[in-house]
């Protein structure tokens, strides 16, 4: 019964349970205590404003490469003007939220885990507790709330820039007809695609902040512990985003079909 595989599964399930408890504490705290606006606005600045460059570059180049690749295939069957419709739908419901989530997981998830991990190994978290401050109220809630606010905004920017860059590549570089392209883009990209993308990004924000906070608050001793927590925060939140994306696509797709 104590095989390494069983132990690994038990630890993995235990970790999931602890993250769920952390989420419960954070939600409880959010509705019980006042969030300090100063802390929240700093976190929105750090997670949102400072992530813009990396998210916008990713969005733009993803839109451009998707346009080129789709055009090369569609051109064979003379469907050039449908290219931007594919780019629009893909960017809104899949690539925009997922790539923004992954880029923010790399930048912000790592930073949260490293900061909280360092605070833990230098006893700053214990100091907070002795100063009658709950680490969830002071550290987790502002980061989680800020990520929930920032991710949809970053995703919206990424989608807009991705489609815009795709349009420029399609129309000016590959010579697709602009009027028909625009017509098809607007015709096939529905508000529901944008809504699905924004709902997904809201959830990915929570995943990135929660996994980063959990890994930081529970990191091992010393520099090695902080390093491992940082790596695991990025890896686990990225994997969680990719897995969640599949289920969200199914559930949200079905839900909006019914509605």
């Amino acid at each position: 019964m104590n095989s390494p595989g069983t132990k690994w599964i038990a630890e993995w399930l235990g970790g999931l349970g602890r993250i769920a408890f952390l989420a419960r504490d954070a939600v409880k705290s959010l509705f019980t205590f006042k969030v300090a606006w100063r802390d929240l606005s700093y976190q929105i600045y750090f997670i949102g404003v400072k992530s813009q460059s990396v998210v916008l570059v990713t969005g733009a180049f993803t839109g451009m490469v998707l346009t080129a690749q789709t055009y090369f295939q569609f051109h064979k069957v003379h469907m050039d003007t449908a290219t931007l419709a594919v780019v629009g739908v893909s960017m809104c419901s899949e690539l925009g939220p997922v790539l923004t989530g992954l880029m923010v997981a790399g930048r912000v998830g790592a930073a949260i885990a490293a900061e909280l991990g360092t605070m833990r190994v230098t006893e700053q978290i214990d100091a907070l507790r002795t100063l009658a401050t709950h680490p969830v109220d002071y550290l987790v809630v502002p980061r989680l709330s800020a990520a929930h606010i920032a991710l949809p905004l970053l995703t919206a920017e990424s989608i807009a820039l991705g489609i815009g860059a795709g349009y420029v590549v399609g129309v000016y570089l590959l010579g697709i007809d602009p009027a028909y392209s625009w017509h098809n883009l607007v015709k096939y990209t529905k508000a529901v695609d944008v809504t699905i993308g924004l709902i997904k990004s809201f959830i990915y924000g929570g995943i990135v902040a929660l996994v980063g906070c959990y890994k930081g608050l529970n990191c091992g001793e010393g520099a090695e512990g902080v390093g491992r927590a940082t790596t695991e925060a990025v890896v686990y939140s990225s994997i969680a985003i990719l897995i969640a994306n599949f289920f969200l696509t199914l559930v949200l797709g079905k839900l909006f079909q019914i509605l």
Binding site: E123, Q124, A127, T130
Partner: peptide, 12 residues
């Protein structure tokens, strides 16, 4: 309680 930690544990 007040507590002084070994490394002071100041918020850096």
């Amino acid at each position: 309680f007040g507590m002084l930690f070994q490394g002071a544990a100041l918020f850096d």
